[in-house]
Amino acid sequence: MKKILKFILKVVVLIVLLAGGFIGYLTLTEYKPAPIETVEIEQNPTQQVATNQNLSFMTFNTGYAGLGEDEDFVMDGGQKGRPDSQDVVEAYLAGIEGLISAHEADFYLLQEVDLKARRSFNLNQVTHYQDLLPNYHSTFAYNFNAVFVPFPVSLTDYIGPVKSGIQTLGRFKVESSERHQFPGEFSWPLRVANLKRAMMVNTYTITGSTKQLVVVNLHMSAYDGDGSLRAQEMAYLKAFMEAQTALGNYVIIGGDFNQTFPTAVDVYPTKPGLYQAYPIESSFLPAGYQWGIDITEPTCRLLNQPYEPTSDLNQYYIIDGFIVSNNITVNNVSVIQDNFKYSDHNPVFMTVTLN
């Protein structure tokens, strides 16, 4: 009996040591970006934005080509941690590229684009979109950079290494591109293998104007239980907008806010027991800005089950869209309803005119 107890004790000690060593390794290799970092610009064109120009934008959370119609996800109440095969990811990726090609825009703001990640079978999606749009510039900033994500805990179904982020592609010459790290973080040790939420700020010269066009691509926090991360991120974004107003710049902010827009709060009420997207306060926008959103269609679905359009268990959200400065006229905003075939998000398309 004593020998059995000693053996069990040794096993427990070994497990504790291994777990401690693993957490220590993740801590030492934790991604720690600076508050603001310069982003490399790929395949930069020479064409410049003009005054009084009409421009079009698409924002699309691509779900790393791994969250299409046949998927659920354990964090949303489903069962899976990643798609079943590389073929599945390649099919979703081809569908996403088809949507981009079918809706020609001057700017594409993409979120959850994997550079290299086990969850998407290490397909470089950044270069896929660059190759799809060879006449567009491309900028990419990390939103997730972890050497290993042990969640969900399973011998075969785990996330593993992730290099992923936000990618902006556009027809015009970028003068500068920066990654802005949002303030706030999860507590240790949860933060060491978690997302580092950020926004990417691209600036463009406007011919005939002393002002600049500023295009922001963002992907804000989800699964933030007490809302403290969201509050810090939104305060940072508001201060940024106020600074741009003082400069008189033309500003377009697009992406996945992971929060319900003020006018969409009652469109898709949260069903009992399902994930709730926090509402954005109606007073959030500073003077000089307007929403560019469409509340007639959902922009996101909960991944509690594979998508079944007629199911009563579906939970929808309106969390993707734009913020636009008042020196820009919003001509049209519409959700591209694709029934979540290739991602858990639908793209949002907007046309504007620079005044």
Rank of each mutant, 00 (worst) to 15 (best):
D226W: 06
N258C: 14
Y275H: 09
T168C: 06
I318E: 02
Q86H: 09
Q290C: 12
V201L: 11
F284W: 14
M220T: 09
S334A: 14
M199V: 14
V192Q: 05
V251W: 00
D84M: 01
A193V: 02
L18M: 11
G225P: 01
S56Y: 14
V214I: 12
H128R: 14
G160E: 11
E308S: 14
P298M: 03
G81L: 11
T139P: 00
S311G: 09
I96W: 12
S221Y: 05
L229K: 09
A146I: 11
S85L: 08
Q79P: 03
Y275F: 10
D70Y: 07
N331M: 12
G66F: 08
N54H: 04
E297H: 15
V324Q: 13
E97I: 02
Y278W: 14
M75V: 11
T329G: 01
F60K: 12
I41G: 03
F257H: 05
Q43M: 04
Q167A: 13
E42D: 06
K173R: 13
M350R: 01
K173D: 06
V126I: 07
T353Q: 14
K10E: 12
V251N: 09
Q111T: 07
V126Q: 00
Q290K: 12
A102I: 00
Q48S: 15
Q125K: 09
K196A: 09
D70S: 09
T139G: 02
T62Y: 08
T263Q: 11
M58G: 08
A34P: 00
F144R: 15
D338Q: 15
G68Q: 03
S343P: 03
N202E: 12
Y25G: 10
H180W: 05
D87R: 12
I323R: 04
V324S: 08
M234Q: 13
K10I: 08
F257Y: 11
T351K: 01
V352A: 06
F322H: 07
Q315N: 10
A91Y: 09
L99I: 13
D338G: 04
S343F: 05
D76H: 06
V13C: 09
L303S: 10
Q125C: 03
S164W: 03
Y158A: 13
T210A: 14
P161G: 13
L155F: 01
K3L: 00
L213D: 01
S56V: 07
T299F: 01
Y136Q: 01
Y92Q: 03
A231D: 02
I100F: 05
S334Q: 15
A34C: 00
P262R: 04
S120T: 10
Q276G: 02
K211N: 10
L67Y: 03
P45H: 10
M1N: 03
T310M: 06
I96V: 13
P262V: 03
L26N: 04
Q43A: 05
A277K: 11
P189V: 01
P262C: 03
N249P: 07
F73I: 05
Q43R: 15
Y204S: 03
G288V: 10
N249L: 07
Q167H: 10
F107G: 05
R301D: 12
N122I: 06
S283D: 15
Q125E: 12
G160R: 09
Y25T: 08
T59F: 05
Q48E: 15
N217K: 13
